[in-house]
Structures are given as structure tokens and as C-alpha cells.
């Protein structure tokens, strides 16, 4: 379980002399085991900062962030991150990229390759093991990113607008594949997005954030049955939550200069 309590994060206090910017203020929430939580908010609400703090990539000054009651002090083997811009090594082929996390963690070469091939198959990239990232489409590149994260068999998957850089068709396809994947292997997922459809389609709960400073405005339950397919988009509950999100986000955007 991920527990975030009274978390605040300031930027720019150390040595550049500028006034500190409060990126996150008094954040409180929990993500239960095997739960899929999507996080949505206007730009500047600190959602990516929040994810990076949970990932252990940046420090925080106040509050508590813990995973199964162990405080987060850095990255850990139970977490893996999927990045918005894929973050693939351009010099390594698909196999090399997917084995990265395993090799860093000292898994023997034969074993890590076997595991990587399995995951490459799971994300539907069989036959592309020896291709370089630049030879792949954006959607395929992010599937490599997903396979790399899943390869280390994390308990928690942290996804930072993973489909944000993709075109609409690819994005919808990958959402469906992610849903199928998650049905098979229920990880705990924190998924940042700025798409309302995506937030409702994927999440068990949607966390709505407000900007400047970033705060949690509301946790919204998504009462849609699983396994979900595209059809849920037509259900009244889906439409209602989506509309509700839009009302809020619209008000936040309008309030900005």
C-alpha cells in the first residue's frame, strides 16, 4: 500500500535565491494494493512531481511517503516507472532496453534475457527484439518502456503520462492493452494523465488535483465493472464522471491568468 501523508514539496529554496515555489501542499491519500489510481489535474498541479517523489527520484521536505509502512528514501525494487518520453537507450535494441532493469539489479544474463523475451511477447513486440528504438513507432517504443518496467516484476507501477506523447488511435489501443494486462496481473498502479477519458477508463479511482500549489481536491470512485472494454464509454456513470471532471478542470483553467 502506498501512503502519502501531509506531503509538501518546495522547489528553488536551496541556492538560486528565488522565492520558493510550493509545488505540492499537504497531500494526503492512499493507494490500496492492486488498485489502479489515475491522477488528473491541470498543468502545474504537481502531478508529475508527486509521482517522482513516490518513485524516490526526488526528495521531499515535509510529510510522509511510505510503501507498506516503509518510508520512501529512494528508488526501490518494489517500484518501476514508465516514463512519458519512453526514456529508451537509443544505442540498445529492444532486448537490451527491456533487460536494463534486470541487469542493473544483478540478474544473470541468461535469466534476464529469458524474462525480457517473455515480456516482449506480452506487450506484442515478438520479432522486434533486435530493433533499435529509432526503428520503432512511438506506440511500440512505449510498449518497450512498459515491458522494461514489468520485467523487474514490480509490485507497484508508476506511470507518468505514459501515453501522452502518442496519437489518439495508438493511445486508445495501448489503453485497451494495458487494461487486459492489468486484468491478468493486478499491480498497484499510479497513472498520471491529462486525458479525462483515460482517467475514467482506466482507474478504480480518479484523483483530481488543483494547481498552485498542488493539492488533492477530490478522490472519485469509478463504479464501472471490470474487465472493462471500450463499451464503458457509453455508460451513464462514465459520462457523468467525465463531465464532472471537465467542470472542475474547466473552472481551474478559467481561474488561471
Amino acid at each position: 500500500m502506498i501512503r502519502v501523508k501531509a506531503l509538501s514539496k518546495e522547489f528553488g529554496t536551496v541556492d538560486n535565491g528565488n522565492a520558493a515555489v510550493l509545488a505540492l501542499s499537504d497531500i494526503d491519500f492512499e493507494v490500496r494494493d492492486n488498485e489502479f489510481v489515475t491522477v488528473i489535474g491541470p498543468s502545474g498541479c504537481g502531478k508529475t512531481t508527486l509521482l517522482r517523489i513516490i518513485a524516490g527520484l526526488i526528495p521531499y521536505q515535509q510529510g510522509e511517503v511510505s510503501i507498506d509502512s516503509r518510508p520512501v528514501t529512494g528508488p526501490g525494487p518494489e517500484r518501476a516507472v514508465v516514463f512519458q518520453n519512453f526514456a529508451l537507450m537509443p544505442w540498445a535494441d529492444v532486448l537490451g532496453n527491456v533487460t536494463f532493469g534486470l541487469e542493473v539489479r544483478g540478474v544473470a544474463k541468461g535469466e534476464s534475457e529469458g524474462r525480457a523475451r517473455e515480456l516482449i511477447k506480452v506487450v506484442g513486440l515478438e520479432g522486434f527484439e533486435r530493433r533499435l528504438p529509432k526503428e520503432l513507432s512511438g506506440g511500440m517504443q512505449q510498449r518497450v518502456g512498459l515491458a522494461r518496467a514489468l520485467a523487474v516484476n514490480p509490485q507497484i507501477l508508476l506511470m507518468d503520462e505514459p501515453f501522452g506523447a502518442l496519437d489518439e488511435q495508438t493511445r486508445r489501443l495501448l489503453q485497451e492493452q494495458l487494461l487486459q494486462l492489468w486484468e491478468r496481473e493486478r499491480k498497484t498502479v499510479v497513472f498520471i494523465t491529462h486525458s479525462m477519458e483515460e482517467a475514467v477508463m482506466l482507474g478504480d479511482r480518479v484523483m483530481l488535483m488543483t494547481p498552485r500549489p498542488g493539492k488533492v481536491k477530490e478522490m472519485i470512485d469509478v463504479p464501472l465493472n471490470r474487465p472493462r472494454s471500450r463499451d464503458v464509454e457509453k455508460s451513464p456513470a462514465f459520462i457523468e464522471i467525465k463531465e464532472y471532471l471537465w467542470e472542475n478542470l474547466r473552472a481551474m483553467q478559467a481561474a488561471q491568468p
Binding site: A55, G74, F83, A87, M89, F100, V104, R105, V152
Partner: peptide, 11 residues
């Protein structure tokens, strides 16, 4: 981003 990716895997 690549350095951050490596760090996220505990490199």
C-alpha cells in the same frame, strides 16, 4: 531522462 530512468531501477 535516461539517467533518471536508470536511477528509478536503482542503478
Amino acid at each position: 531522462a535516461l539517467i533518471e530512468m536508470a536511477q528509478s531501477f536503482g542503478a
